[in-house]
Computed example of a mutant assay.
Amino acid sequence: MTNNDFENSAKDKLIKALSDNSTGNAKSLVNSYLSHLRRFRLFLASDGIVEPSAPTQEKYAYRAYTRKKKMDIDVPNPSVDQVEIYLTKWDGLENYHLQEDALNKLFFELCPKNTDVIDVLLKASTLNDFYSTNIFSIYPVAKHICGLDIDVRLMAGDVTLVRDIQYVTIGDTEKNFYSFASKYCSHHNPLDYPIYDSYVDEVLRYFRNRDNFSDFQDGDLKDYVKFKGILIDFRAFYGLDKYNLKQIDQYVWQLGKDYFPKNYGKKKQTKI
């Protein structure tokens, strides 16, 4: 517990012990055990208080516990069983299915291309309404998208396209519609474009802090190329490679909605 290389040495020993004594996925199981060791180490080292001078290698162990609100949250460890529970739950949400079916018909059948501003306006307006993204002037967004000639890039899964769509000048002000841009691309090509939103952001930061599955900075989640890579790292770290990114997205979003609800009197976002 007092080893200066606690993270690596504890993880290596746990993986060996679990591999020798368990039939489960050791890399997946180790995170739950490691999180408890981190809490005990935190208690021994500082009685719950992290000193500003703590070495960088210690910060990973303490980062999830710097705010009391986060300390009280105990999210189930990602696993195949957990993903199956949430995908089954998703299948039972009739309102989401009907809205998703409507969007699929609009994006795949009625208006699959993005060369006619009227088609783009229909899709952008519907997304804005269904997701409550609060874009108050949708026409400049549609015109911007139409001018980018995006169809070939969408089919190719070009992740840099999200950044090109997200920045729109309305009047004299440049707006950043990052989450909307990820949704617009995702509804054309859901397997290559996972959706970014605040619930997903919360879950990825929580498990980074708890299990150190990645060393990204908070701001990296607002860079779509990095965001997609982080989500892929999350999937690989917890042994969830059998699921595509849309399924991982559905799981993570519901997890965030359950464990990191928004209780500030604001209208909750609807996920499709």
Rank of each mutant, 00 (worst) to 15 (best):
G147K: 04
D172H: 09
Y196R: 09
Y178C: 00
K89Q: 15
K183T: 11
A102E: 13
K113C: 04
L103M: 14
D197V: 08
E202A: 11
I170N: 07
D197E: 14
S179E: 01
R205Q: 10
L127M: 04
V80D: 15
D116N: 15
N209R: 10
L98M: 09
F136Q: 13
L221C: 13
V225K: 14
N176Q: 03
D149F: 09
F207G: 05
P112Y: 13
I145S: 12
K175A: 12
F213S: 05
S79L: 07
H187C: 13
D101P: 00
K175F: 09
T173W: 01
N134Y: 04
P194R: 03
D223W: 05
Y196G: 06
N134E: 05
Y178D: 00
L204W: 03
S79V: 03
G171A: 03
E174I: 15
E174G: 04
G147N: 14
S214K: 04
D158V: 02
E94W: 00
L110D: 15
D101K: 15
V120E: 01
D164S: 08
R163H: 01
R208S: 12
H144L: 04
K113N: 07
D223Q: 14
T173A: 08
L154F: 10
G219Y: 08
P190G: 05
G157Q: 11
D119Y: 03
G92C: 00
D149N: 14
L122H: 13
F213Y: 12
I165W: 04
R210F: 06
I135Q: 07
N212Y: 15
F130K: 12
D116L: 10
R208I: 06
N104I: 09
A102R: 10
V200E: 02
N104D: 15
N134A: 01
D218F: 08
S132C: 01
K113E: 10
K113P: 01
N134K: 13
S132P: 00
L127R: 06
L93H: 08
N189E: 08
G157S: 10
T133A: 15
Q166I: 04
R163T: 09
K183R: 13
S182W: 03
L87H: 05
V141W: 09
G157E: 08
C111D: 06
C146Q: 12
N114M: 06
A124C: 05
V200K: 05
N209V: 07
D211R: 05
V168L: 01
I85C: 04
F180I: 04
Y86I: 00
Q217V: 03
D211E: 09
K113A: 11
D201R: 02
V117M: 04
P140Y: 08
E202H: 05
Y196W: 10
V83T: 04
D201G: 00
A102H: 11
S132G: 09
L87N: 06
I150L: 08
L98N: 09
N212T: 12
D164M: 07
Y131W: 01
A156K: 14
